[in-house]
Each structure stands twice: as structure tokens, then as C-alpha cells.
């Protein structure tokens, strides 16, 4: 996702490290971190994923005044009818926007869009106080025949740069679109 301004905050790093179950003090304790090689608090390796917080149009976050496709009064906010429990083989597809790994972003597809691959190249550690920006470009596209139909893969390259324009992290994501629920691939 393209993001103009992704300010890196200490509290956000702490919460991200907690969420992935990493208690390494280098992610929250400044006095500890100062005695390590990196010399300050840094962000964990997959932290740039949270740049979604700063994408105003990010489709996988509910927004005030807009319908959300998750459940509320009905199983999906996009439909008024209460859905009967569906078996895994008969999906009411069509309500899943693409995953951030598929950074084409917001397209609602007739099927599942899942995150197939992710790769980060690190140019320097991310520290609190950094203000990053992210630019996204489309990469390769390819098809594969899966057990339940055709799988469409799409690659996106995201470049995270600091306030001086220096490259900090390069991310390569691969999203896959399928015809129905997927119990083999992941997201």
C-alpha cells in the first residue's frame, strides 16, 4: 500500500513486538538498547507491515460511516440477510477484499485473495522517530493450476524510504486469488 507518511513510534513498536510474542527488550527498553550493538530501540523485522495504519484508504480497517464486510447485526455488514452456516465447500464468496500482500489493494474479488509470500530486504534498522514513506509498484504476474481451479499470483514491490529519501526496507509481497475458500494456502 502506498503511504505518504508512516511515523515510527515507540509505543507502536512495543505493541507490535507484543503481538508477535517477542519480549526482546531491544524493542522497548531504551537503556537496555543503548548498551547493544544497534544503540537504540529498533523495530522487529516485520514491523513495516503496520504501515497499513497510515494508509487512509486501507480496505481492511473499518471506517466510520462506511459499511464493513464483517459481522454485526448480520454475518456480513454488506448483506441484510442472516446467512445460514456455510460448509467449507460452499463459500458465499465475494465479500473478501484482497490481502495487503496483494497490494493491488481494494478490489473485491469473486473468491479468496490470500497472502502467498512475503520477503523483506533490510537496508538499515528502523528506529522510533523515523518518518517513512512507502511507494508500491506492480511486479510479475503468473498463473498456476491448483486443485480447485486456476490460481492467479501477483507480485508487488514496496519501497520504504526515510525522511532523507534513503531506502530502509524493500518488501516483496505475493498475493494469490482463488475461486473459493482455501485450506492449503494461508493469509
Amino acid at each position: 500500500m502506498a503511504v505518504d507518511e508512516f511515523p515510527v513510534e515507540k509505543g507502536a513498536i512495543l505493541m507490535f513486538a507484543r503481538a508477535v510474542g517477542d519480549t526482546n527488550p531491544v524493542y522497548y527498553d531504551e537503556s537496555y538498547a543503548q548498551r547493544t550493538e544497534v544503540g537504540s530501540v529498533i523495530a522487529p523485522p516485520t514491523f513495516v507491515q503496520s504501515s497499513a495504519q497510515f494508509d487512509p484508504d486501507y480496505p481492511l480497517r473499518p471506517k466510520p460511516g462506511q459499511k464493513w464486510f464483517g459481522s454485526g447485526r448480520t454475518p456480513s455488514g454488506l448483506s441484510e440477510a442472516p446467512a445460514a452456516p456455510a460448509s467449507p465447500s460452499q463459500s458465499a464468496a465475494g465479500n473478501q477484499p484482497s490481502d495487503p500482500g496483494d497490494a493491488s489493494g481494494s478490489a473485491r474479488s469473486m473468491g479468496s485473495s490470500l497472502h502467498a509470500e512475503q520477503e523483506f530486504t533490510y537496508h538499515r534498522p528502523i528506529r522510533p522517530g523515523d518518518v517513512l514513506s512507502a511507494t508500491v509498484s506492480a511486479g510479475k504476474r503468473w498463473d498456476k493450476q491448483g486443485r480447485s481451479g486456476r490460481l492467479e499470483f501477483a507480485e508487488t514491490i514496496t519501497e520504504y524510504r526515510d525522511q532523507d529519501g534513503h531506502l530502509v526496507v524493500t518488501a516483496r509481497g505475493v498475493g494469490v486469488r482463488t475461486a473459493g475458500p482455501v485450506t492449503k494456502g494461508s493469509n
Binding site: 507484543r18 507491515q49 504501515s51 481492511l60 459481522s71 493469509n187
Partner: peptide, 8 residues
């Protein structure tokens, strides 16, 4: 919450 990806 930490990543911002609230996909239901």
C-alpha cells in the same frame, strides 16, 4: 490491532 489488518 498492531498491524492494522482487521480482516474479519
Amino acid at each position: 490491532g498492531a498491524s492494522g489488518d482487521y480482516n474479519p
